[in-house]
Design a protein around this nucleic acid. Sequence first.
DNA 1: GAATGCGGGGATTTCGAAATTCTCGGGAAT
DNA 2: ATTCCCGAGAATTTCGAAATCCCCGCATTC
Lengths: 233, 233
Amino acid sequence: MAATAEPKDAATRTEQVFRRLRDDLLANRFQPNEPLRFERMRELYESGIAPLREALSRLSESGLVVQVGQKGFRAAPFSLEDLHDIVETRRKLEVLAAQDAAQNGSEQWESNLVATFHRFGKVSRSKPETVAERAVWEERHTEFHRALIAGCRSRWTQQLWSIVFDHAERYRRSAIGLGHWSENEYADHKLLFDAAINRDPERLGELLHSHIGVSAERLVMHLSPSLAGPKAF
Amino acid sequence: MAATAEPKDAATRTEQVFRRLRDDLLANRFQPNEPLRFERMRELYESGIAPLREALSRLSESGLVVQVGQKGFRAAPFSLEDLHDIVETRRKLEVLAAQDAAQNGSEQWESNLVATFHRFGKVSRSKPETVAERAVWEERHTEFHRALIAGCRSRWTQQLWSIVFDHAERYRRSAIGLGHWSENEYADHKLLFDAAINRDPERLGELLHSHIGVSAERLVMHLSPSLAGPKAF
DNA sequence: GAATGCGGGGATTTCGAAATTCTCGGGAAT
DNA sequence: ATTCCCGAGAATTTCGAAATCCCCGCATTC
């Protein structure tokens, strides 16, 4: 048996396509509202139509793609209104979940959070320059927030949080290259980390609330120009 | 142009299968954890395999069915733990959404709520006896709760609420025939309705919190015997 | 007797093509 | 000039069968 458990068999082709498609969507490798035609998808993902349709169907259920009538699939559109809603919904869920984790998280949650924050810290002390560095930073950042709420007792809250966090990440990553970066990413998250480890739900809630709010404001500032058009996309 | 908008073209076969499958799942016409084999599904829904797989994929994304490895699809299992989680998550979302609706709901939301409560009232003054009556009651009940939060400004909160409410409804309807019915369904919902119309978020929140809590307790009492087994299903 | 390896049967998964539907430009009628 | 209709091309949707994989019983071996 290997060191770390690796359940990622990538068993079925639908699964592979689903994961790669989701990655590409979150990385904005498709334009918002761009039609996802099968001919092109077949080449891109080296698959028949059946697995593609299944993966796209699943993604349409969580809103990353939209399926119109008999007109196929498109990458989900962007809009300032949607961004605002996403952020607010994520904020409520994450505050609830994190506070519950701070109160009821297990020993194992705590130690996993320490390890995850350590990994996040290593890539957050300086601004990521290359695309690859930025991708790693995003991964670690997501990992940290997930680890923060992983101690929450409600599986469903975590599941719903994942959905809106995905959408938030899609917006966030669309601002890469627009100079979207804050100098105190590390310090901000350190505060969250400390409040969680100190089991201080009150403070953790306040910090999270403002952290998400501030990040969102900065994001809206960067994205407003491109999203302000008359039609939402 | 017809009187009321009817966008239900039932255009694509996948859509039809999806809707019917979802209905059958919510009505517990499949046993929890029951394998959903394609041979049988083909006969039941008069469809090829492709639309079935797509519908099942979408349903697996929201958790009504689970897809195992290369072993196909099953109806989602039941467990007391899951029920508890569902109820708590729904409670938080619905309280948040309803309070926002009470504060910010439009004129149109208000009038639609009146109409919906009227329809609900007509079937809630006496206990539904036949299966058909009970089905109508469930429909109107869902309609009322949806209309209550429809005034909420957050589309995403409403969307996430829909997911957990579906699961809650599945549990609730599994208790039909076990004498699961309360005499004061009408009175309880009348209080909610009044608080919403009076734009009293504080009171509406409290009422909803206890309404969902009480309903859940009664439900757990009825379902505990069948769900208490060593294995979750 | 218990554990291991091997096929047969059944079920899922995937493919390639047929059927259906939509798009869009050109032409006729008003 | 504008509107409406129609048909060719293109794209989606659906089907039936081939390919693949899993379960399970049985024989073999230690």
